[in-house]
Structures are given as structure tokens and as C-alpha cells.
Amino acid sequence: MKTSQNYWGVPKWVLAIALVGALFVVLPLLAMVVRVNWGQFIPLITSQSSIDALLLSLRTSTIATLLCIILGVPMALVLARTTFPGQRILRSLVLLPLVLPPVVGGIALLYTFGRQGLLKAPMNFLGIQIAFSTTAVILAQTFVALPFLVLSLEGALRTVGTRYEAIGATLGAGPTTVLRRITLPLVLPALVSGAVLSFARALGEFGATLTFAGSLQGVTRTLPLEIYLQRETDPDAAVALSLVLVAVAIIVVGLANRVGSNSRLGPNVLS
């Protein structure tokens, strides 16, 4: 060995399997890159329908992420900091969209917010029409993305514990002040990574959108739906757009990792 190095203590066969696993994830991406028609790449991804789809995806995913934060932070706090009967069941239900096939989520949303859905009467009364609107896309994305934020934040809240909050209270800070000045800053890395996961999930959302929101250029046809549609006639465009989606996802996850590591708590946090 040329340089000094710590002994890893990882069995060789583990490294081998890990390599296979990594290839399994990376190869399909590589295969896609290989298939891109680079000569036509720019025209393919700058067609009006592609740009509309990309902008719509970014817009709806951002709003969905904000909704996830607004709804998810209180949910995570209640799940992590309080105890009440039925809490475990409630947690399971809240996390259900994680494991639910998105198309099932779409059907469920349809029967809730649809024209003939559960909330038909109040929505008619208020004159709200959600089906086939951008709002429907955002609802579908929020529905599937919310558990990611709740899950990662709840875990972080439990890890951080309540000791700092208790100290804050004895220093005269009310619950809201404690939340704003202690709890949220302490779990900020988890909040950021949870929000990024939610954003990524919202960006990739397909099944629920297709079922619940429909597909209309500039209104409900997000990038994944555009890719799905382009595949019918123009596989080159579909591959090119897929690559754009992958690139956006990589940029977002990379940014989040930076934020996460910068704001990671120091080693003496719990001492």
C-alpha cells in the first residue's frame, strides 16, 4: 500500500455484491445515455411540448414540496412528540402512500376530490373544480410525496430528543418559540433532505397524476407523462427527456447533500 489507510473490515464478498448492486442501478442510466440521439438532443428537449412539461413539472413539484412542508412538519411533530390512542395506526395510514402503487393513490384521490367524489357537495358549494386542473397534479404529487417528509422528519425529531426543548422552556420560551428557535433548527438537515426526497418523488410522480389529473399540455401533462406519451411516436424524444429528468433529479439530490452536510451538527451535540 502506498498510503496509510484504515482497515475497512468489510468482507470481500460484500464488496462484490455491492458492486453488482451499484452496476444494477448505474447500467440502466448508462444504457439510456448511450441511446440518446445526441445530434438531435437540443431540438428534442427544447420543443414547446417538452419545455411546457418541464416547467409544469418544476412548478407543481415545488408547490407540492411546500405543501408537504406545511402539512408534514406538524404531522411529524404530533407523531414524534405526543402519545394518543391509535397513534400507531395513524402513522401506518399516513405512510401508506409510500407503499401504495401510485395508480391506486390516483384512484383514491379521484374518489375523494373528483366530480363524483366524497367531497362532491362541499366542493360544488364552493365552486371548486379540481379534476383536469394543475391543482389536481399538485394534489397527486403532495399525496405521494408527503410520507417522505413526515418519515424523515419524525425520525430526526426522535433522534434529537426533547432535552433541548425542555431546557428552552425553562429559559422562558413558549412552545412556539421553542419550535421556531430550537426544534426546527435542530432538525433542519432532516427537513431539507425530507423536502428534497419529496420534491424528487413529486417530480417523478406519474401514476396518480395520470389517473387523477389527466394529461393536457401545459396544464396537467408533467414531464413523466410527456415522456410516456412521446414514447408512442418519438422514442428519441422520450429518451432525451428521460435524461433531462435524471439530470434534474441528480442536481436536486446533489444540492440537498451539500446543504445536509453543511448544516450537519457538530460532534459535541449530545455531550
Partner: peptide
């Protein structure tokens, strides 16, 4: 309550 607590650990807010 107007009661402060000094705990075994300093528990200074790390941020």
C-alpha cells in the same frame, strides 16, 4: 414558571 434548569449536560443549543 420563572424556573431555570441547569442539567448534568450543558445542552447548549448547537446551532
Amino acid at each position: 414558571r420563572g424556573i431555570s434548569l441547569l442539567a448534568q449536560q450543558a445542552l447548549l443549543f448547537p446551532h
